[in-house]
């Protein structure tokens, strides 16, 4: 009998706890987005268009990814970038340069560098939601409209003082659960980067952003647009794709 009382009280306590948490947290929304984006494996062909000071540079690349942790990117053009390959394993990026026939390993604050001359940093393509949950606190603001779509608006603030993006403001489409816009701020409140989703397509029954533009506000008159030309989900990935040997392979 006594055991039962304890068991019941524990259950009641847990129910109370659950009820108290029914208010939506920004991270739940982000998890929801991630679910939308989630895949076992993916193959993508895309163009990266860098616009800077009246110049337009197009780079094309292919990418294999397994979950959030592993990805392998190969640049196909322009000529000087052709054959440059990147292997991302969690927070470490290895890059192979064909001109030097050497591999460089990037980690830590070096990931803040511009990726291949674009407005994206290596960090921008490696940060994930589970990390956001660990490192930021969040709050939800009033809903707003972004190009005709009703959006959740949330602000994440870093727990650490030294984070590159101290504050992140995200607009999430309420209906489709896709992030439409992100503004990244420094600790001093300076706007560092703006990311916008320009196009969303339905791919294999899910909403997926296919055109994304990033503007690095510290570079004058600069933006980089990623255009996903071909996406395949849950395809078999060739063995040994995520290895250093594959990087070196010609």
């Amino acid at each position: 009998m006594r055991k039962n009382i304890i068991a019941i009280s524990i259950i009641l306590f847990l129910v109370a706890l659950l009820n108290s948490q029914d208010k939506l947290s920004p991270f739940d929304i982000l998890d929801q987005i991630d679910k939308n984006m989630i895949y076992q494996t993916a193959y993508v062909e895309m163009d990266m268009i860098i616009r800077i000071k009246n110049r337009k540079i197009t780079k094309s690349l292919t990418s294999y990814a397994e979950g959030n942790e592993k990805s392998f990117i190969e640049f196909l053009s322009p000529a000087r970038d052709k054959g440059t390959k990147m292997l991302k394993m969690n927070d470490i990026i290895k890059i192979y340069y064909p001109s030097a026939e050497r591999i460089m390993r990037l980690s830590g604050h070096m990931l803040r560098q511009s990726m291949m001359g674009s407005d994206f940093s290596y960090e921008d393509i490696t940060e994930r939601v589970n990390k956001l949950r660990e490192e930021y606190t969040g709050e939800i603001l009033e809903d707003e409209n972004v190009v005709g779509h009703n959006c959740y608006v949330m602000v994440l603030t870093s727990k650490k003082q030294k984070k590159t993006y101290y504050r992140i403001k995200i607009w999430v489409d309420k209906k489709r659960y896709v992030g439409l816009k992100e503004e990244l701020y420094s600790k001093g409140g300076k706007l560092l980067k703006v990311m916008k989703v320009d196009k969303i397509e339905i791919i294999e029954q899910r909403y997926y952003p296919t055109v994304i533009t990033m503007e690095d506000k510290l570079r004058k008159n600069s933006s980089t647009t990623m255009i996903l030309k071909k996406i395949e989900f849950n395809i078999p990935i060739p063995a040994q794709t995520f290895t250093e040997r594959q990087l070196m392979k010609k």
Partner: peptide, 16 residues
Amino acid sequence: LLLVTTDINYSTYALP
């Protein structure tokens, strides 16, 4: 040492 830079056409280039 490996030297990596972005060239004047925003391509990445490296030399040892």
